[in-house]
Design a protein around this nucleic acid. Structure first.
Length: 504
RNA sequence: GCGGGUGUAGUUCAAUGGUAGAACGUCAGCCUUCCAAGCUGAACAUGCCGGUUCGAUCCCGGUCACCCGCUCCA
């Protein structure tokens, strides 16, 4: 059981060693955006590449034991805005919202009704549109100064002029004038295409990478010789207007996803496929070094299922025990049943046939979709949290215990002293090794300092050239977690390190 | 979006209405030693804008960012 590391320690290590910086740091940053520094970029790329390998290059065997086909795409962040109308993102999540300053409650403007007195005197009362008559009567009795419901007319809130807001009593308060003016809540970030800004050329930055996977379904079936069941994978940036960016890179407005949409026959064993992906994806997180005790499956209840997943085999999140929520868990990846929702929607909105033909039966059908949607940037955070290890017995006081397969630097080459021909041997080894993996060559300062520096950035192996090297061509290899050393011949160093990089 | 807190060097922290310090890190030189990251030296900071004041890093206002609690998170 490892200790919970405060987020601020992780954030400051990231800054100090060049993993992650606030975006536009010199201007004071910008809420919800982060820049990846030299080591953070290596780390993120490593996680990204391993995902691609496990999903696209070497996907698992299917239910029948045959290798699955997963193909990749890399689509534009900006797509035709109709795509987001079809997906439900434009209309579903851009309703004007207003707040009550008194109760701190938030309402959708179109869900509220107003009881306005017919003589224009006194306060107007605001209710939820589905408020019970009993509730309305009770509040009128209390707040309407002798008037009865017959003295009021009902109007919807959007019809109320802003100048009248000071006269409104909110649904959950007794005071007038506590409601803020409605503001549009935009889930999606938008921009305008072309020089002139206007509603005609409004476009959206994608809120998820899967939208354009679905719109490419037909192109891929027509050109890529894939046959159902198969998957389409994509890694890329997405954007979302989070109300409150929070918890370092966990909830940010620009983030990166690793998604795969799996298309199968609706008559196929959906539950079987779903379980296959669910387990395969968890195994993958374990394979890059997250520990089982920090991972959790969370099954969505009917109430919190997304609009596309109300039916079907459900939705599971793979969750991680991030320090800011521990001992609880928060989302890392979603394994969701998207049913035939997306392809049906796109067929409706585009008037293009988004179906697939079973060549045995000549039957056309809309494929059934299962989604694995992992957060790459959330993965980086989970890996950083998992790796941060306190160790008071070493100079750095801590080390980053990240799996060698994702470590930003695989090895550091350190001549014990900067003389006696040691730097020359070190540089020769460095030139050889850097052809195969990211390695550091560090000659300055004493050896303890250099080990400490490598511990802080999670380098799994430190290779030290010492006086004995010139005698018998051996070096020491120091293992990061144990600090134990063994002597290895120079010719075998590369092989030794390579042999220890993979998941085992 | 609301409420509360915080903002001093790359990091972690001091101090002050009148010349802003330390540790670690970084860089240079020295040393040559397998990890209490040695020795000497150097560079680097009061988030931003405005107000009060002879003078503001300190007091006040605004703003931005971060943290906590709500809200939000298809």
């Amino acid at each position: 059981m490892s200790a919970i590391i405060p987020m601020k320690d992780i954030v400051s290590l990231c800054k100090r060693r060049g993993f992650i910086f606030p975006a536009s740091d010199i201007y004071g940053g910008v809420n919800g955006f982060w820049d990846y520094g030299p080591l953070g970029t290596e780390l993120k790329n490593n996680i990204r590449d391993l995902w691609w390998k496990s999903m696209v290059i070497t996907p698992p065997l299917g239910l029948d034991g045959a290798p699955l086909q997963i193909v990749g795409v890399d689509t534009a962040i900006i797509q035709n805005p109709t795509l987001w109308k079809a997906s439900g993102h434009v209309d579903g999540f851009s309703d004007p919202m207003l707040d009550c300053r008194e109760t701190k409650l938030r309402y959708r403007e179109d869900k509220l009704i107003v009881l306005k007195s017919k003589d224009g005197q006194g306060h107007a009362l605001v209710f939820h549109e589905d408020a019970e008559q009993d509730t309305i009567d009770a509040r009128l009795k209390k707040l309407a100064r002798g008037k009865s419901s017959a003295d009021f007319e009902t109007v919807s809130l959007p019809e109320i002029d802003l100048s009248e807001y000071s006269n409104l009593i909110g649904p959950d308060t007794k005071k007038a004038g506590t409601l803020t003016e409605p503001k549009e809540f935009n889930l999606m970030l938008h921009t305008y295409l072309g020089a002139a800004a206007g509603e005609d050329n409004k476009a959206y930055l994608r809120p998820e990478t899967c939208g354009s996977i679905f719109t490419n379904f037909k192109n891929i079936v027509d050109t890529s010789r894939v046959r159902i069941p198969f998957g389409i994978a994509q890694i890329g940036k997405s954007f979302r207007n989070e109300v409150t960016p929070r918890n370092f890179i966990f909830r940010s407005r620009e983030f990166e996803q690793m998604e795969m949409q799996f298309f199968c026959d609706p008559k196929d064993d959906i539950k079987g496929w779903f379980d296959l992906w669910k387990n395969y994806r968890k195994e993958w997180w374990l394979s890059i070094g997250l520990s089982d005790e920090n991972l959790n499956f969370h099954e969505h209840t009917q109430d919190d299922l997304a609009h596309y997943a109300k039916e079907g085999v459900g939705a599971y999140d793979i969750e991680y025990k991030y320090p800011f929520i521990a001992p609880g868990f928060d989302e890392l990846e979603g394994i969701h049943d998207r049913s035939q929702f997306d392809l049906s929607q796109h067929e409706k909105f585009s008037s293009k046939k988004m179906q697939y033909q079973n060549l045995q039966t000549n039957e056309w059908y809309t494929p059934y979709v299962l989604e694995t949607s992992a957060g790459l940037t959330r993965g980086v955070l989970a890996v950083l949290c998992e790796a941060y290890t306190i160790d008071e017995n070493r100079p750095s006081g801590m080390y980053m215990n990240c799996h060698p397969s994702i470590a930003p630097k695989k090895a550091a080459i350190l001549p014990l002293v900067a003389k006696d021909g040691q730097p020359e041997i070190a540089q020769k080894l460095y030139m050889e090794m850097r052809e195969h993996m990211p390695v550091d060559l560090d000659i300055k300062q004493n050896i303890g300092k250099r080990y400490a520096r490598q511990d802080e950035i999670g380098t799994p192996f430190c290779i030290t050239i010492d006086p004995q090297t010139r005698e018998d061509q051996t070096v020491t290899i120091r293992e990061r977690n144990t600090m134990a050393q063994k002597r290895v011949h120079l010719d075998q160093v590369l092989g030794y390190v390579q042999g220890n990089l993979k998941y085992s």
